[in-house]
């Protein structure tokens, strides 16, 4: 049953991705990328990652769609006619994909409980969280407490990205120009 749901979701996601590839109207591309995010959120639910699904639904289908639309409003609505088809990108992609698939052949099969990822720290986290923190949601406990340094770094990265956006298009440069004009 799980496999069937996954396959259906995958089918929809691959179709969406191919539609994004083919479409030239950017509005449709942006909307389809929102659809893609929502589908991936559904897939995260089937993979037991409810926290991640939650975030992906809010971020991918909400905020990033708005940002892409905002960019579109500031730039253009249509993609130019695509360049003449060249085989090099396709070749690069096929070779990369083949190498990656070759790499997965050594991996433990999907969902196996005795894979290395499951047997080392994961069990420790699940066992210790109720004793150490008393927080039922293990994801929150790891996020904020066990891996607090990590999350602190991520928060700083988010903040830094905002500073970067504000420097690029936030109007700080314009204000300086105006001041310079004022002194002239």
């Amino acid at each position: 049953m799980d496999v069937l749901i996954n396959l259906v979701l995958f089918g929809m996601m691959v179709t969406t991705a191919l539609a994004i590839l083919r479409m030239r109207r950017l509005f449709a591309v942006v909307m389809l990328s929102g659809v893609f995010s929502l589908l991936s959120a559904l897939l995260f639910v089937t993979l037991d990652a409810v926290d991640v699904a939650f975030t992906e639904a809010a971020v991918g289908a909400g905020i990033s769609t708005v940002l892409l639309l905002g960019t579109m409003a500031l730039t253009s609505r249509k993609e130019k006619m695509p360049r003449k088809f060249s085989p090099i990108p396709l070749l690069v992609v096929v070779v990369t994909g083949a190498v990656l698939i070759y790499g997965t052949l050594d991996m433990p099969s999907f969902g196996s409980a005795d894979s290395p990822a499951q047997t080392h720290v994961a069990a420790q986290y699940l066992e210790r969280t109720p004793k150490d923190t008393g927080v039922p949601n293990v994801v929150t406990a790891i996020l904020a407490s066990y891996r607090g340094y990590d999350t602190f770094g991520e928060t700083v990265v988010v903040f830094t990205a905002a500073v970067g956006v504000l420097i690029l298009i936030g109007g700080f440069a314009r204000r300086r120009d105006e001041e310079e004009e004022g002194t002239d």
Partner: peptide, 21 residues
Amino acid sequence: IAVATVMVAIYYAFASRPPRI
């Protein structure tokens, strides 16, 4: 607080520019 305000700040930055369309 940080994430909410960062997202709003980014939205302000994009929306405050005069649109081309």
